[in-house]
Design a protein around this nucleic acid. Structure first.
Length: 228
DNA sequence: AAGTAAGTCAACCGCGAGAAC
DNA sequence: CGTTCTCGCGGTTGACTTACT
């Protein structure tokens, strides 16, 4: 009888995150089920995949949804239903899980309230989305947002704070001005391969150097050239 | 200050689609 | 063609935080 290896559940620690990042940077993603063993993680492949896709993956932006993003989500939810991955595909840098959570906790109630209000007050045919964003149509939803699309200051709360470690894995959002430039930079595989993963840990000097290189202190805005 | 309710969100679970054999 | 495996999706849970009494 083969004993199933112990698989850890629950919140990921910074150490686990680092192991996963290091492994993927070194070897890439080849098989989620096999990877955890080789990466030294006592996690299921599913758990690793979820962690990577939703939090550690490059260019992910979490929280702080702008008004425009909110309206886009409402619009797309109306159009596509609860197809969160399809909605996420049309919102650059956002994950399906984050959008789903945001919808369930913030937007759903608001939409229900607005619907109740509008149905009791008027029979107008235009949605509040269209009113609030004149000229918004499905084509405009596909564009990569510019900094001007995010009127609110971009602040990120996603810093790990364990007793000894404190680092930000989420601050990998890239401004559209830099996005394509960095993307083409990272599409050169030799560059990524040449990184020594041991020295690109979140606390390492190289890691910090690369973050600093792309940090815009005016906008409190991060870009991570290691990932794209 | 303590207890409780409500809100938030990271992570898990089950299922289906598609690929590989 | 059937079976197995992997991946991705959407619904849900539960731990944690915040607000309220």
């Amino acid at each position: 009888m083969v004993r199933q290896p112990y698989l850890k559940k629950g919140t990921w620690t910074p150490d686990e995150d680092q192991k996963l990042i290091d492994y993927i940077m070194r070897y890439g993603i080849w098989n989620w089920n096999e990877m955890p063993k080789f990466a030294g993680l006592q996690r299921s492949g599913k758990s690793c995949r979820l962690r990577w896709m939703n939090y550690l993956r490059p260019n992910i932006r979490l929280g702080n949804f702008s008004r425009e993003e909110e309206e886009t989500i409402i619009h797309l939810q109306k159009e596509l239903g609860n197809r969160w991955s399809a909605i996420a595909a049309r919102l650059p840098h956002r994950t399906d899980n984050d959008i789903k959570n945001y919808w369930n906790t913030h937007l759903k109630k608001r939409v229900i309230l607005e619907n109740n209000k509008s149905s009791s007050v008027t029979t107008e045919t235009h949605s509040s989305i269209e009113e609030n964003s004149p000229g918004a149509d499905s084509s405009s939803l596909l564009k990569i947002p510019t900094m001007a699309d995010f009127p609110e200051p971009l602040t990120y709360g996603g810093t790990f704070t364990s007793s000894e470690n404190s680092y930000s894995m989420r601050e990998t959002f890239v401004s559209s001005e830099n996005y394509w430039e960095i993307l083409s930079f990272m599409e050169q595989p030799l560059i990524a391969e040449s990184f020594d993963c041991d020295s690109v840990s979140p606390n390492s000097q190289l890691w910090l150097n690369h973050h600093q290189q792309y940090y815009d202190p005016v906008d409190d805005f991060w870009a991570n050239p290691l990932f794209s």
